[in-house]
C-alpha cells in the first residue's frame, strides 16, 4: 500500500514540473518503474486515478512502463536479468555480480495540450 505515498510524490512532482500551466492541460504522464522497485503498477494507477482528480490533473492519462532488472557479472562480464530466486550469474554461476538497474522509479516526461488558436 506504499503505492499511495508514491502516487502522491508523482502528482507533486508533476505539478512542480509544469510551473504556471493549468494542471487540467496535462494530457499524459509517463512513469517508469523497475520490476524490483516493489511497486504494483495496478495499485499505483488506482491511487493516481483517485488523487489526480483532487489536484486538478483531471485529464491526465498515466502510462506506467515496467523496466526489467539488470545485473552485470564481474566474473564473465555479461549482463543478465536474474532468475527470481537467484541473483547470481546464469552464464558462469558467479555470485560476484553488480546491480545495474531495476529499482528505479521515475517520471520520464509529460505531455501538455497547448491552448487552441
Amino acid at each position: 500500500m506504499h503505492e499511495y505515498s508514491i502516487a502522491k510524490y508523482v502528482l507533486d512532482s508533476t505539478l512542480s514540473s509544469i510551473g504556471e500551466t493549468p494542471p487540467e492541460r496535462v494530457s499524459k504522464v509517463v512513469i517508469s518503474i523497475g520490476k524490483m522497485a516493489g511497486v504494483v503498477p495496478e495499485s499505483l494507477d488506482m491511487y493516481l486515478k483517485l488523487l489526480a482528480q483532487e489536484v486538478g490533473l483531471t485529464r491526465a492519462v498515466f502510462e506506467i512502463v515496467v523496466n526489467p532488472v539488470e545485473f552485470k557479472c564481474n566474473q564473465c562480464g555479461q549482463t543478465f536479468e536474474p532468475n527470481k530466486e537467484l541473483f547470481w550469474c546464469p552464464h558462469c554461476g558467479s555470485s560476484n555480480v553488480t546491480f545495474v538497474r531495476g529499482n528505479e522509479m521515475a517520471i520520464d516526461y509529460l505531455e501538455i495540450e497547448e491552448e487552441g488558436p
Binding site: 512513469i31 517520471i107 520520464d108
Partner: peptide, 13 residues
Amino acid sequence: QEKRRIEVGKNIL
C-alpha cells in the same frame, strides 16, 4: 490540440 512534451527524467522519490 497541439501537444507539448516536457522531459522530466526525475526520480519520483
